[in-house]
């Protein structure tokens, strides 16, 4: 399963950021989370370039620059799930992964000196960003449905949308 985003539907409302932060808080409650120390951090980032909004979180790359950059051996690709997970007991907060991630989706929890990133909500059976998205821009779909061809077509459409092709 992969998280997909349709930028033409994304309004940049940041509901996903909020849901992500709450899911990764100790209390799992918005109002209590605000007062938590350390402050819970979001792992999805709503970016905009003026004409296009885009919620972006870890792509869980096959050949992941963060895993190769991690000098603490804490950023590891899980062999079973294929997901990249940061093991907090090993992470020292050197931010080598931040330096290497081409998508800029690793957040720095400076209080705990931990790199935090999308973990696909292991305590929940469904990614909370997708669940919370009010416009249906974020979807959680089976990988075969998004073959390489589909992905390329998807990027092509966005570039047309941006007037680059």
């Amino acid at each position: 399963m992969e998280i997909f985003l349709d930028p033409t539907k994304c309004t940049g409302c940041k509901t996903c950021e909020l849901a992500c932060t709450v899911e990764h808080s100790a209390s799992k409650d918005l109002y209590a989370a605000i007062l938590e120390i350390p402050r819970p951090r979001k792992r999805i980032f709503v970016e905009t370039d003026g004409d296009l909004n885009f919620a972006v979180e870890c792509r869980h790359c096959q050949d992941a620059p963060c895993v190769h950059a991690c000098m603490a051996g804490s950023m590891v690709q899980d062999e079973d799930t294929g997901l990249i997970q940061n093991h907090r007991e090993k992470c020292v907060g050197c931010w080598m992964c931040v330096m290497a991630c081409p998508y800029g989706v690793i957040n720095r929890d400076q209080f705990s000196r931990l790199a935090v990133k999308c973990d696909r909500c292991p305590e929940n059976d469904y990614p909370q960003c997708v669940k919370s998205c009010p416009t249906g821009a974020l979807t959680y779909v089976d990988v075969p449905a998004q073959s390489k061809k589909v992905r390329q077509e998807f990027l092509f459409q966005i570039r047309i949308h941006k007037g680059e092709m």
């Binding site: 970016e47 370039d49 050949d63 081409p102 998508y103």
Partner: peptide, 17 residues
């Protein structure tokens, strides 16, 4: 300080895994 570069233009290193 940032652009949507990687999402649309970045291609992963040519290493097979």
């Amino acid at each position: 300080g940032k652009i949507f570069y990687s999402l649309f233009y970045h291609h992963q290193h040519p290493v097979v895994s």
